[in-house]
């Protein structure tokens, strides 16, 4: 089962139009939230997506799930031996395909309906499919609840009776009840306290083993991403700066932005000095990204070519992609 390609995204673009006020609502520009992103993911792998707020991490997740219409690009998804291009799938075919992919949200307090019992919450994805009997639904809810360490007693209660960690387990059960192959975890552990967070990360990793899941794991906490991911992509203003297997990315980063990002993470290790690479200024606005390399406004190694030409997305070493003009000089 290993090394079976599940997802192949190429040149994905998601642009949101900005309208002028007035009668005809003329389009005056686009927010290029995701602007030409490519990656592939095998079954059972986890791609970690890191980057600062507004860099387009969530937009990628939503576009792949087709909660958003991609502007351009291909999203080819292989399930049970058949290929589909998710970017063009429409209507009934898309609806039938949806159980294959699910989303786990960030805030377990906001993403559970307070007026539904836990059983109803978990079973809703199945009810939507209209193809299961009540008995089958009950069985599957119980099975998945058990896997997510919820007991049968819990199923009759309402969300308010649960703590943050338990609520997140309910969210995970809801996402997995339709037996998806691909799950997007959008900041799924960020709202949790450290002592609870570790437990949820362990649960996600156990479920991945048991159910052979593939994750797209979006988070801003780099150490969490490092822990759970097989490979990691670093995003900056709608584009990938670097994509590499986890250990390579964390121990041999190539892109100046990746290095700055890694150096800025405060650690509990007191022996090594905390010396973050100083990045001047703020993150550019994706409606008006800088010319050339998007990082050039803050890059400590900026040269004249960076300001004019867009760097190539190149495979610098096997599996290690980077977009930087000066990667050869700097490494």
């Amino acid at each position: 089962m290993n090394n079976v390609n599940l997802l192949d995204v190429s040149n994905l673009k998601v642009h949101f139009p900005i309208y002028l006020n007035g009668l005809f609502r003329k389009v005056k520009g686009y927010v290029k939230a995701v602007d030409g992103v490519s990656f592939s993911l095998d079954r059972g792998q986890t791609l970690g997506l890191v980057g600062e707020s507004g860099s387009g991490k969530t937009t990628i997740g939503r576009a792949v799930l087709r909660a958003l219409e991609p502007t351009e690009g291909k999203i080819s998804f292989t399930a049970d031996g058949t290929h589909v291009d998710l970017a063009t799938l429409q209507g009934k075919a898309l609806k039938q395909f949806r159980p294959n992919m699910q989303l786990i949200f960030q805030d377990p307090y906001a993403s559970l309906n307070p007026r539904m019992t836990v059983r109803d919450i978990i079973s809703e994805p199945l009810e939507c499919l209209n193809s299961f009997s009540r008995k089958e639904i009950d069985e599957r809810v119980r099975e998945i609840a058990g896997m997510c360490r919820l007991n049968l007693e819990h199923l009759r209660r309402f969300p308010h009776a649960f703590s943050g960690g338990q609520r997140q387990r309910i969210c995970i059960a809801r996402a997995l009840v339709s037996r998806p192959k691909f799950v997007v975890c959008d900041e799924s552990v960020s709202a949790l306290d450290v002592s609870i967070q570790a437990e949820i990360i362990n649960l996600l990793m156990d479920l991945q083993q048991e159910l052979h899941l593939t994750y797209l794991f979006i988070a801003h906490d780099l150490s969490v991403v490092a822990h759970i991911s097989t490979k990691v992509a670093v995003m900056y203003v709608g584009q990938f700066a670097e994509l590499a297997p986890t250990e390579r990315l964390f121990f041999k980063p190539l892109h100046p932005y990746t290095r700055a990002l890694l150096s800025a993470v405060p650690t509990i290790n007191l022996e090594t000095a905390f010396e973050p690479v100083k990045l001047e200024g703020d993150i550019p606005n994706p409606a008006n990204p800088p010319q050339g390399c998007r990082f050039h406004t803050r890059c400590p190694y900026v040269s004249s070519i960076c300001k004019e030409e867009i760097p190539q997305w190149q495979e610098w070493e096997a599996e290690h992609f980077v977009a930087c003009h000066r990667v050869d000089e700097l490494n």
Binding site: E52, H220, A264, D282
Partner: peptide, 8 residues
């Protein structure tokens, strides 16, 4: 805040 801004 984001990590790079946090460091600042």
């Amino acid at each position: 805040l984001d990590v790079t801004i946090q460091a600042q």
